[in-house]
């Protein structure tokens, strides 16, 4: 359905800059619902909650599944369930409103138009998110659509689903750590220092890469790339210029601060264990 400028069909395209941002929780929720779907169901659908930022980005923050049944072109949605759940969610976070709906599967299917119509009555211009849980083309395709009405004069002809850009950067997931979310079983959560170690190793590896690149450019093995060069020089110059003595002073001061804190905390601990011993001793007397 390529948009042809000479067509007589009218688009009501008001939101050219519309895009969506999906939070990782939504993907997790959809996957979980899909795994727990009823026996005979082929797909799960549900409501997306979130907010719309001033620049037109739809933030999809939360979701819940809605039971439905589909048979030969007929779609029955449990509207009561949908409303109950909505009320419950709004009690917790009134700022999250309906922004659209999701369905598993690849792309838009026939029944989708009907469901989309229902959600259009709930909220203007809902977003339709499809998550291919079947990995049908070899990858988990996640797409977002909005629908436009194709009309000829006053007559409604059809609904056109147009794909909108989808931002899948998972900053929240990164905060938790992909290592934890990626694998099926993690035996132990990393503690402070272990996490630090992992981060440092990664930093070291990055530095190594940069060294190698610079060396090979200098030796003429790799053609120099001005862009990369600029990035490197920017990075190097972002280190504040400090005289060695000033730096020493800075580092030493911080180290001493930290040592003092450590010292205090160990004194307190000793104090605690001492107090406990004394308390029990006092009881014996």
């Amino acid at each position: 359905m390529a948009a042809n400028e000479h067509t007589v069909l009218q688009f009501t395209s008001s939101s050219a800059s519309l895009s969506a941002r999906v939070h990782p929780l939504v993907i997790f929720n959809i996957c979980d619902c899909y795994v727990r779907r009823p026996d005979q169901a082929e797909r799960v659908i549900g409501t997306l909650l979130g907010s719309i930022s001033p620049d037109g980005t739809v933030e999809i923050r939360n979701s819940y599944a809605v039971p439905h049944s589909e048979s030969s072109g007929q779609v029955a949605l449990d509207i009561e369930y949908h409303h109950n759940m909505l009320v419950s969610h709004q009690k917790v976070n009134p700022k999250e409103v309906i922004v659209g709906w999701y369905s598993t599967g690849l792309g838009v299917t026939g029944g989708s138009a009907l469901i989309h119509e229902f959600y259009s009555s709930e909220v203007p211009n809902p977003v339709h998110l499809t998550v291919d849980t079947g990995f049908r083309n070899g990858q988990g395709t996640i797409k977002a659509y909005v629908s436009f009405n194709l009309s000829l004069g006053d007559r409604q002809l059809a609904a056109q689903f147009q794909e909108i850009p989808l931002d899948l950067r998972m900053v929240e997931a990164e905060r938790v750590g992909f290592d934890i979310l990626k694998t099926t079983v993690v035996d132990k959560l990393p503690n402070d220092l272990e996490g630090m170690e992992a981060s440092m190793e990664r930093l070291l590896a990055l530095l190594d890469d940069v060294y190698k690149y610079v060396d090979s450019v200098v030796e003429g093995r790799v053609p120099p790339d001005n862009n990369i060069g600029r990035f490197i020089s920017e990075t190097v110059s972002s280190l504040p210029k400090l005289s060695p003595s000033a730096l020493d002073k800075l580092v030493n001061n911080s180290v001493q601060d930290n040592l003092l804190l450590l010292y205090l905390s160990s004194i307190i601990r000793t104090q605690l264990s001492l107090a406990e011993k004394l308390n029990t001793a006092a009881q014996i007397l």
Partner: peptide, 8 residues
């Protein structure tokens, strides 16, 4: 312990 479904 953290576990995830294979799908996730």
């Amino acid at each position: 312990k953290v576990s995830n479904s294979a799908l996730v």
